[in-house]
Write a protein that binds this DNA or RNA. Sequence first.
DNA 1: ACCTGAACACCGTTCAAGT
DNA 2: ACCTGAACACCGTTCAAGT
Lengths: 234, 234
Amino acid sequence: MTDTAQTAAATRPLSRGRIGEAAVAVADAEGIGAVSMRRIGQELGVEAMSLYNHVANKDAMLDAMVELVAAQLIAGTSSLDAPDPATDWRGALRARALAAREVMLRHRWAPGVLQTRTAMNLDLVRYYDGVVGVLRAGGFSNDLAHHSLHALGSRVVGFSQELFDPGAAADDASEEMLEAMAEHVPHLVGMLAEVAHDDPASTLGWCDDQSEFEFGLDVLLEGLERRRASTVVP
Amino acid sequence: MTDTAQTAAATRPLSRGRIGEAAVAVADAEGIGAVSMRRIGQELGVEAMSLYNHVANKDAMLDAMVELVAAQLIAGTSSLDAPDPATDWRGALRARALAAREVMLRHRWAPGVLQTRTAMNLDLVRYYDGVVGVLRAGGFSNDLAHHSLHALGSRVVGFSQELFDPGAAADDASEEMLEAMAEHVPHLVGMLAEVAHDDPASTLGWCDDQSEFEFGLDVLLEGLERRRASTVVP
DNA sequence: ACCTGAACACCGTTCAAGT
DNA sequence: ACCTGAACACCGTTCAAGT
């Protein structure tokens, strides 16, 4: 690795873009915890301190990573044959969110990093602009579009906040543990038992992230459509 | 500080609970970034290494912090005169979410930490159990209750995922910057201009987190009520 | 203009030693 | 049983020195 990296460094000059790419690759493969200045430098066949010539600090390196993901968000939605928002804004927005979701699934560290960023990112703002464009074309007032953006929250960029991953928790938890908890959490245990019974293949880690994402998205889209329709005076 | 801390340590023995409390206090005051083993030890008038007698590692210390917040979640909902879920599940759940939100606003580091946790936490699970209890009392099937839990996501514990804080971004951005971006993000700039115009007091950092939280919550509650009603055969 | 090595001030964690 | 000090392997970042 050191050898090929060395020659690569000699070939292509270091740059903010190359640093971002290397960092994304490491984060994709080993998680964001593996991303350090020293490690990315090593990946590029260079001392960690050399990175500071192209990137102000680690935070700026994370910004560069976000930039690449945001660019994929834009790329993903432009190569999309979605419904015309003027006639089917829900379909148009739904397609956008699902396309964004595919990007986020390729970079599972991205949601966490995105949340810590405050720096303005042009492509990310452009993505949001596209969403507002869809809503406006679909007949939303600017005010309702604004509220809708907040209501959809992160779902509009392809992920939803799962505060607590029942699957991960269940992996740790034995069934006996759940039984022991039953008296404290009767509703949850009852629900779990019934849902697991209906779909026995997925005993404990039973949640289908994709379909739950779509369920939540659709509830929101329906509710927003209802509000849009009630504000339109024909 | 060292002096009073020393005597305090002599008075009350170290414990997982005291460590958690100290860590929560530091995080509340200075953010989660200030929470380190060395710092919490210092806060308790003890060497960092002493903490390891009561807490397996830093991760376990974070678990102890979450435990305290989850206890407040439970405490907040028990001292709540909310509507009877059997007659008004939406009111009951709404009150719960808003009470939880107050807890989270007191511990702004909590959402971020919560997301990194996988360990089973009894009080948190009990809180969720209460939510499922409300839904069941309101007439939800176990299946719909399960989907609803996912759809509500973190909102049910009082915060929503704001991927991008327009307020924070706007603080950095001058109006000129926005004008310069106008050609790239015409919809967003237009929306911003109109919303800001209607409420001129809050020019750029214009989003009212609390009311946006409630808007999103209400859209979801309405949409879920609609689905509940359509599954009930009278 | 870019890269390097040593250094600084921090981390979490281990371990042998104290009481 | 609990606490300590030194040590290890990491961080991000600064700075003077190289080319």
